[in-house]
């Protein structure tokens, strides 16, 4: 009897798995139920550091991500921007990612700017993209203008009131990186190491485990990991967004996958006993 059950459980069709995963995502998305959000120390540190920036100072916020990971990264950018603009920080943004980065920055910044009544060139600037990120990051340390003669919209930097006296990393009180790839390594290994700029990062869950090493060595002030990290930041900023809404589904799918792992192991060991 047991072995027959094991046999059946060992051969579940992949489409059944796909269906159950879909259901586990769809139901909590439609029926949102409140779940507690426990803030991790790395998120708290990052939030506190940004809170500590004097009002009206300048921050560099990067959009170093592809559209493939928008679900994890965009809520981070949105939450940080809300925090920044609530403190009236001036935000300069750029992207080292070719496919989509500057367009995503353009959309997110201008949509939120309308809500907060922020004016381009006075409250925020989008520098856009330049190729070969290592050269870009190093070059910005000496002269932003030589790498970016104009912003994303072809406006010379000197024509933007906010950028008048800005030409190196020294102008920024903090660098907030939002990324889905290894560019964080270059921000840390080049910009933090050579120019001493303080920085923190919001990254996708896949990237997060590596960057704990940089947090401990104080090369990064703090770290947001994946949609959960974004939900924690939304909680701290006090504005629930897409990441918080996703936590129910995240919980249920994890549980479903764990159940499948247990089923797979049960089937394997029960089947082995028979042999």
């Amino acid at each position: 009897m047991l072995t027959r059950i094991a046999d059946v459980l060992a051969r579940i069709d992949r489409r059944i798995i796909y269906l159950l995963i879909s259901i586990s995502v769809i139901i909590p998305t439609l029926v949102i139920f409140p779940l507690p959000v426990q803030v991790s120390p790395e998120t708290q540190k990052l939030y506190d550091r940004v809170e500590a920036i004097p009002d009206s100072s300048m921050i560099l916020l990067t959009f170093d991500y592809y559209p493939s990971t928008l679900a994890e990264t965009e809520p981070m950018s949105v939450a940080v921007l809300k925090q920044c603009w609530r403190k009236n920080l001036k935000v300069v943004t750029l992207s080292t990612v070719g496919l989509g980065g500057p367009s995503i920055a353009d959309r997110v910044m201008s949509t939120l700017a309308d809500k907060f009544g922020k004016v381009y060139g006075i409250d925020y600037v989008n520098l856009g993209y330049k190729a070969n990120y290592q050269a870009v990051l190093l070059g910005l340390g000496k002269s932003i203008r030589s790498i970016y003669p104009t912003d994303y919209y072809d406006t010379p930097l000197d024509s933007l009131p906010m950028m008048k006296n800005v030409d190196t990393y020294d102008a920024f009180d903090f660098i907030f990186i939002v990324s889905d790839n290894g560019i964080v390594d270059n921000w840390v290994g080049l910009v933090n190491a050579q120019f001493g700029s303080e920085m923190g990062a919001g990254v996708t869950a896949v990237m997060a485990p590596k960057f704990y090493a940089y947090v401990r060595s104080n090369q990064l002030v703090g770290l947001l990991g994946g949609m959960k990290g974004a939900a924690e930041y939304e909680y701290l900023v006090g504005e629930k967004g897409a990441a918080t809404a996703g936590m129910g589904a995240q919980s249920l799918v994890h549980l479903t996958i764990i159940i499948f792992i247990l089923i797979g192991n049960f089937a394997y060991f029960a089947g082995r006993k028979k042999k």
Partner: peptide, 8 residues
């Protein structure tokens, strides 16, 4: 997997 979601 459980420790990083609210359900955990």
């Amino acid at each position: 997997m459980l420790g990083r979601v609210p359900l955990g």
